[in-house]
Design a protein around this nucleic acid. Sequence first.
DNA 1: TTACATGCCGTGTGCGCACACGGCAAAAAT
DNA 2: ATTTTTGCCGTGTGCGCACACGGCATGTAA
Lengths: 354, 354
Amino acid sequence: MMEVTIKDIARIAGVSTGTVDRVIHERGNVAVEVRNRVQQVMRELGYQPNIMARSLANNRKSLRIAAILPDYRSDPYWVQPKEGVERAVEMVRHYGVALEFHYFPLFDPQGYSEKIREALATQPDAVLFAPLFLAESDWLIQETTRLAIPKVMINTRIESADALCYIGQDSYQSGVLAGRLLDFGLQDGDSAMVLTLDKGVRNARHLLDKQQGFKDFFGRPESKSITIYYEDFEAFDDDKALRQWLKTCLQDRPRLNSIFVTNSRAYHLAAVLDAETQKRVKIVGFDLLEPNLQLLADNKIHFLINQNAWQQGYLAVMALVNHLVLNKPVPSLQYLPLDIVVKENVEYYLQMNR
Amino acid sequence: MMEVTIKDIARIAGVSTGTVDRVIHERGNVAVEVRNRVQQVMRELGYQPNIMARSLANNRKSLRIAAILPDYRSDPYWVQPKEGVERAVEMVRHYGVALEFHYFPLFDPQGYSEKIREALATQPDAVLFAPLFLAESDWLIQETTRLAIPKVMINTRIESADALCYIGQDSYQSGVLAGRLLDFGLQDGDSAMVLTLDKGVRNARHLLDKQQGFKDFFGRPESKSITIYYEDFEAFDDDKALRQWLKTCLQDRPRLNSIFVTNSRAYHLAAVLDAETQKRVKIVGFDLLEPNLQLLADNKIHFLINQNAWQQGYLAVMALVNHLVLNKPVPSLQYLPLDIVVKENVEYYLQMNR
DNA sequence: TTACATGCCGTGTGCGCACACGGCAAAAAT
DNA sequence: ATTTTTGCCGTGTGCGCACACGGCATGTAA
């Protein structure tokens, strides 16, 4: 059961461990025929470096990561990536990983810019961020590229940025999925509403993608014939206004039996529906936030699509560690599962992140 | 960013590293007041042993695991646990873990007994098994208990066995979940069939649990009023017989619009339905097997509940490693998520295990 | 008293790897 | 012919931990 070590390779190749080490790390100063011989032996014995010993010997170098995320206190959604990040850092503590958070206000491009500058001023070895604001992200992307600082993006993807990787949801596909779910519970001739509850980002890319996915699903021949309405409402914080607006929305559309809320704020909607409407209207939303869970348990929200926000944070840190510490390859694009959650299986997803 | 080491503790507590080591591993030969002092310092500094160094220093001991599972060549389902096990072993290779498979024929208690004896004869340090046959598992449980060999069970749970842990699906809950899904797509007055496609295990515990869960869901006030039929069919391998049997089943029940197949063999059923029936009947099955996936893509199976069989194998090995190598606590009961899979999100679950 | 056992503790070594350092010969510069 | 440089290679040390060994007191038996 003994593993193959550099000692074995050195012995068999008739060189010292130092030479084997030089070959492995391509540090030069090795004669060509010697190098070939060593590589040959490594291949024959199927040498795999012992990651334990490797990281033990490497422990002098530490990896400092700057994480730039929306303030979790301004929106419950962002608690999840934050906790995933924290958990990952805890797990790789022994690799000498240190991470510093830089929280910006969710709806404030100005504050975002400030935090970006603050983060880069600390001269991190790597950056983890959610580029919610495209224009303001430009400077960060250019600077990190210039300084050769690796970066991972979560939540929102900017294709032009040559990041180490993007980790997030496939927004388009989640729209398609929502269509599939509602289609199963609707009848021919029913209608559905795609509802955006957000502020000033009506045409944000990921929201548009979800709408498009939803629309495309109902364009498929296999789908039922459903009429789709698209609506925005910005004052989602104001229960009264929302209730009023919704009433007018529903009253002229008797067969509007389903609503697809394109972000994690379905709880605002479900909470203001009256009992009768709740029975009639099937709601699909996103993410396992506490208020959503409550309404799911009460059968007021029918499906939640879990975008695995927690995992996004976790995997983003792991991608950096894999790349910078363990020299392992990381996929440049990582879509997370779109879990379909109902109250009968929600418990499993909650317990995973604890 | 430096971690706290036993050296630090030794220095501050005014003892040697050897003494600290004795305290940590409770090996005795330490004066009471010295031990208390060391423990105090450890607590104050929040000492956490470096797992890299620990496993490096421990690498002499190796862990030999015997895995007793159904032959994956006799049933595609069992390919998944097998691959999960293999993957886990690969990941913890450096801990000195070696695993040997002992495959038994799926429907053969006799063969199961033989393999159990064969496995124990190799004197493993730990056992990983799926106790499909209760009576025959008795001997294994008693012997491993007598010899103090830790064991983990997957797939089927035997509560009386004092195993390290059970890892598997919650059968009852998966039945409830199937009920929830079909309920969403059915109308009041429709009916549903619970169909068991298995041989000679008609009253196996996990199948009964699924039936009960399904039934209980439709007993809830929130559910629609659905009539439920329970049927078994053993010759599921015989397409002709199955088609014929199904025909008679459906013809006297015009509103039988859904079938819940209680194991991973929904593909046998969906493959023999004629086009007209396929449109009418909604099918819920289990597990992401290749033939199931094909039919899911063709809209002939509507939902698959993923029991995460791959993860079962993976986590079972990890539980043993955590317990025996890393001295980490492991939960004695681990239910895996019941993923709801449709063709729009199936890709994510497939890519996870590759 | 001497001989021996026992409790308690420090020191040394090795796990597999990364990397600094220094040595030795051949090649280049003086 | 001599110094100096350069290419190539071996040796030594330390990462944090586990564990064997041996030492020094004190207590007990002869």
